[in-house]
Design a protein around this nucleic acid. Structure first.
Length: 276
DNA sequence: CACGGATCCTGATGGC
DNA sequence: TGCCATCAGGATCCGT
């Protein structure tokens, strides 16, 4: 479910409220993508008594810095975090991680269980490096320049849509925003990344930033079940230009939006507004 | 090494 | 109603 905007919206919705909280209990439910103690050997109960200092984001991961060590949290496809200071109902069928703190309960709800909560001693620990080490640059970071982007995609032989999804040149762009960015850049998703001109790469670079920023401003996309940690929906989906609009008229030219399959994922585009 | 495909899991939806 | 196939916001692993 969550791409960069949704992860960042989630982070912003509870980071300040949990900062400084003391951990009173930590419990895992059903297994997630990786065990909590993968490579570290540290069990949930061992972080009791530590404090949550800050909540950062790297790509689609949330990093909870503890007074000792950190937690890497990933929402996968269907994950959602809820943070509440009020009385909270007992863990349900799809609640797979509870972090009880002095400021409230942080709970991971994740029906498909592609998400993860993993402990690492530090960002340089093997497990942290395994998960974060190969990520591309942050779209809103200084390293994401037009030069960098053009050179990076110029070396890639795959269709540009797949390159955006790979998290390689740049992190945070998932299935919704890849289609949206390509629409705003007027680029066909099947276009081989290596064949994109500098001028069009620049347009795509700008489109990625614009689409992600716009989604952030709107609180993310709520297609099925996304909500921030307060339980509030996002509104980006209401203005998606192509995503999930198969057969509906393009807002720019009225041509029906097309869907294709790329690497087991749906891609949406306008065959008139977007050129190879 | 870069690429494409299979894969993890549960639930919603649509056709018959 | 039931059954089956397909699809869903991710990303790793494995074979080529």
């Amino acid at each position: 479910m969550p791409e960069l905007p949704e992860v960042e919206v989630t982070r912003l919705s509870f980071a300040d409220r949990i900062a400084g909280a003391k951990i009173l209990a930590a419990q895992m439910g059903k297994p997630l993508r990786w065990p909590f103690d993968a490579e570290s050997g540290v069990k949930p109960s061992e972080i009791v008594g530590r404090c949550v200092l800050t909540v950062r984001r790297r790509g689609k991961y949330l990093l909870l810095d503890l007074s000792d060590g950190l937690l890497l949290v990933h929402l996968g496809m269907s994950g959602r975090l809820v943070f509440s200071s009020d009385a909270v109902p007992p863990a349900g069928k799809h609640d797979h991680f509870d972090l009880k703190t002095s400021r409230g309960l942080l709970r991971l709800h994740d029906p498909r269980r592609f998400g993860a909560v993993v402990y690492a001693e530090s960002e340089s620990a093997p497990i942290a490096q395994k998960l974060l080490g190969k990520l591309g640059v942050e779209p809103f970071g200084e390293a994401f320049t037009q030069d960098y982007f053009y050179r990076a995609i110029h070396q890639r032989k795959s269709p540009i849509k797949q390159v955006l999804l790979s998290g390689q040149p740049v992190v945070g762009v998932g299935n919704i925003y890849a289609s949206e960015a390509l629409f705003h850049a007027g680029l066909r998703p099947e276009t081989l990344a290596s064949r994109i001109s500098r001028a069009r790469a620049d347009r795509l670079h700008a489109a990625i930033l614009q689409v992600l920023q716009n989604a952030l401003d709107l609180g993310g996309s709520t297609l099925r079940d996304f909500a921030n940690a307060h339980g509030e929906d996002g509104h980006f989906q209401l203005q998606a230009a192509v995503y999930d609009r198969t057969g509906l008229p393009c807002h720019m030219c009225q041509t029906p939006i097309k869907t294709i399959r790329q690497g087991q994922r749906s891609t949406f585009y306008c065959a008139t507004c977007q050129r190879p």
